[in-house]
């Protein structure tokens, strides 16, 4: 199920502005990869280029290659819609569809492909996805209630359930805990630990303890100044990066000496 991602010589532009420059990395399957770095270093932009979500912004474009199992996502014939079904995403702030119930939210992605999906089969998927997101016990009695009634942490787990319901190969998380309290954050971190046996997970985080806790590998991005593109400084096993970083910039950032 989980797939390897190979990124080579990736440059990301907004119009004439180069936001991310010359990134090459390999993201291993069945593991959590954390992207860390100061604000504006392009890590979120980079993350969004992994499922072609950055194209939503006008004038954004990409040069280079992102391959999942050898298949380049940016080949002209590739359909971005198909890419996004393959690479799920969880956003900074929980974003369940406000007019849909909990059940409908989880089923939303499935309904797109299989409009006749109904009844027991669909209920099974919804239950499995909610269980997968550690949310089932909390919502099983109110599946038909609006999702907006849930707490922030529950909503975020609902979004994770919605993302895994369509069985993606990869799960991207863009600072999934930044809007949550510590207890909800812990619940999501536990969940990531469970999910990595089945998915390739890439997470952007500002919280270095979180990166150290949840990830197997860590990539450090930074910018050399305003108007400069973000670059990948180094990438390695998480304990390695945090205890013996190879670059001075990484060490400065991790130890809090950065800006």
């Amino acid at each position: 199920m989980a797939k390897r991602i190979d990124v080579s010589d990736l440059n990301i532009f907004y119009g004439d502005f180069r936001a991310v420059a010359d990134v090459s990395m390999t993201i291993e399957p069945r593991s959590v990869t954390a992207l860390i770095g100061p604000s504006g270093c392009g890590k979120s932009t980079f993350l969004r280029s992994l499922n072609r979500m950055h194209e939503v912004i006008p004038k954004a474009r990409v040069e280079g290659k992102v391959a999942i199992d050898g298949q380049d996502l940016y080949e002209p014939a590739v359909d971005p819609v198909a890419v996004r079904r393959l690479v799920g995403m969880v956003f900074q702030r929980p974003n369940p569809f406000p007019t849909m119930s909990i059940h409908e939210n989880v089923a939303a992605g499935l309904r797109l492909n299989n409009r006749k999906a109904k009844g027991d089969a669909l209920d099974d998927v919804v239950e499995r996805s909610l269980r997968g997101a550690n949310l089932w016990d909390e919502v099983k009695d109110r599946l038909d209630r609006p999702a907006s009634g849930l707490s922030g942490g529950q909503q975020q787990r609902l979004c994770i359930a919605r993302a895994i319901a369509i069985e993606p190969q990869v799960l991207l998380m863009d600072e999934p805990c930044s809007a949550l309290d510590p207890i909800s954050t812990l619940a999501i971190e536990d969940l990531m630990h469970d999910l990595k046996s089945r998915y390739t997970i890439v997470i952007v985080t500002h919280n270095m303890q979180q990166a150290a806790r949840v990830s197997d590998r860590t990539a450090f991005f930074t910018i050399s100044g305003a108007g400069q593109p973000g670059r990948l400084i180094e990438m390695g096993e998480t304990p390695e990066i945090f205890s013996r970083p190879g670059e001075k910039a990484t060490e400065d950032y991790i130890t809090g000496r950065f800006g």
């Binding site: 939503v56 799920g88 569809f97 406000p98 992605g109 993302a163």
Partner: peptide, 25 residues
Amino acid sequence: RLHEEAALALGATRWEVVRMSVLPH
């Protein structure tokens, strides 16, 4: 934007984005 992106990230086409997020809103 978040609601539109939620639909996009599920692999929705443009019409599906409109149907799932724009029209209900």
